[in-house]
Design a protein around this nucleic acid. Structure first.
Lengths: 117, 117
DNA sequence: TTTGTATATAAGTATATACTTATATACTTA
DNA sequence: TAAGTATATAAGTATATACTTATATACAAA
């Protein structure tokens, strides 16, 4: 069985997972939000605070948060009247591994082609 | 100057670059193509061959290739009547670093929050 | 209870994306 | 030069995305 055949088998599921992940990340507002959350001092951050950081309306922010939560980039916990968003660490580690795998495959091929010359 | 302030300065440009990169990657056909190119035996691959691999029409494949080339994921070289696509190694290494930086920031924050408990 | 606050969701709209078919461009070869 | 091949681009269309405004839901506090 050739590499291409093997690849065709695993790549379908993994590629679809990566598509979902990349789609969730493919928005500058959401990327800036992730950086802001990374550097922010506030541990538990509410939707209203996030909408202020993002300079977006509450519904717009809420919709972005839904996308990030669906993609398991963020996690939400309800506390009384507020919903606090945080990183989904466990899932983010898995996401990172998927991306690393893609780039490892691609860059390994680059290296192989370079060595052939 | 707080981290948030510093962040606000660098994140704008970098975030926009990441958005473009993630958008280019946010399509399962393109992701599968990257895996196929990674594992394929053919070094120089033409648009027609790619459209067959992708199971898409020639114009559709051409449009995907344009997106991947614009995002500096692939590179094209013309040879006679054919245009051969290959990975843009130099740029891919830079792309990987940008993604790594994002995840490093995010996962460092995760770790920090975990240690606080 | 009633009122206020926090958040989500629904519906509408403008723009982006991913295809299609048709055609243009560039090169090759008879 | 004419005809064929490889690729890109243009135009059209269906669907997705990212907002908007209006409204629903869930909880808190008076």
């Amino acid at each position: 069985m050739s590499m291409l055949r093997i690849n065709a088998e695993y790549s379908s599921d993994l590629s679809q997972e990566l598509e979902e992940l990349f789609k969730a990340l493919a928005n500058v507002n959401r990327i800036v939000l992730l950086y802001s959350l990374s550097s922010g001092e506030i541990e538990n951050i509410s939707v209203n605070e996030i909408s202020q950081i993002m300079k977006l309306s509450q519904p717009a922010a809420s919709q972005h948060l839904k996308i990030l939560k669906s993609a398991k980039i963020l996690d939400a916990k309800k506390q009384g009247n507020h919903i606090y968003y945080n990183f989904n660490q466990k899932s983010l580690i898995k996401h990172k591994k998927k991306i690393d795998f893609l780039f490892t495959c691609v860059l390994a091929k680059c290296q192989e082609l370079e060595n052939r010359e």
